[in-house]
């Protein structure tokens, strides 16, 4: 993955850079937005006897560090569902806790609350907000139904299934119609919801959004019609 080889998209007139890592970079504001980190999803499932590898938080942090090292943001906004459950922050291993704290050092850090983490993470720096306004942009976890110009949200974990005569691929993507933008999930174990799903239908009533699909080295913009249901 080549970090920084992003695609400039406009959301409500604001210039945003969709990064192949799945982060959104607002250069003028030196603000980096990542959504649905789902830290500690592994240990959350392990509590129920599903012992998937306990390296998801580490994997997500390593990727996040690469993005932060590249852009050196003044402000990082985690757009909700940063932890997979309420106790997630307490289950962070000491080394992951330290890694995360290092990333937070020297910059403003906003935890937007999500449906998985309605309360701010305990024992970690950063402010907790339900929403956050940045000029024409309004940042929140869950997108609101209907038209919502300037909204930057996550929650839905969009993926696009692209089918061409050469084959088919299912990848995470940004979804935007220029008025609002849904970010892909950043977390290593975060699954995906096809953007053809009903859940997206009410968000773009007037015109079809484009899928800005995360490729290996860059972002590919694909027309909505080119994306298929699962």
């Amino acid at each position: 993955m080549i970090i920084g080889n992003g695609l400039e998209i406009k959301v409500a007139g604001e210039a945003c850079m969709a990064d192949p890592s799945g982060a959104l970079w607002l250069a003028p504001l030196r603000t980096l937005i990542v959504s649905d980190l789902h830290f500690e999803k592994g240990s959350s499932l392990a509590r129920r006897g599903v012992m998937i590898p306990p390296y998801d938080t580490l994997a997500t942090l390593i990727r996040l560090k690469r993005v932060i090292d590249h852009y050196d943001p003044a402000r990082v906004i985690a757009l909700g569902d940063s932890f997979h459950d309420r106790d997630g922050a307490q289950r962070l291993s000491a080394s992951d806790h330290e890694r995360l704290s290092d990333l937070q050092t020297g910059r403003e850090w906003i935890w937007i609350t999500g449906n998985h983490d309605r309360t701010p993470p305990q024992g970690l720096a950063g402010q907790s907000r339900d929403e956050f306004r940045l000029g024409a942009l309004l940042l929140r976890h869950e997108p609101q139904q209907g038209v919502s110009p300037g909204e930057i949200a996550g929650h839905l974990h969009p993926v696009a299934r692209v089918v061409t005569p050469r084959g088919s691929l299912r990848r995470r993507c940004f979804v935007s119609d220029g008025a609002r933008c849904i970010l892909p999930a950043f977390g290593a174990y975060a699954g995906g919801l096809n953007l053809r799903d009903q859940a997206f239908a009410g968000l773009f009533p007037d015109r079809s959004p484009q899928a800005h699909v995360l490729g290996r080295d860059r972002i590919y913009s694909v027309a909505h019609e080119q994306c298929y249901a699962d």
């Binding site: 061409t164 088919s168 484009q210 699909v213 694909v222 027309a223």
Partner: peptide, 16 residues
Amino acid sequence: AQDDILAEAAAMLIQE
């Protein structure tokens, strides 16, 4: 194939 599929789909959009 992989990313070529994406490139192809993206090219269609550009053509359009």
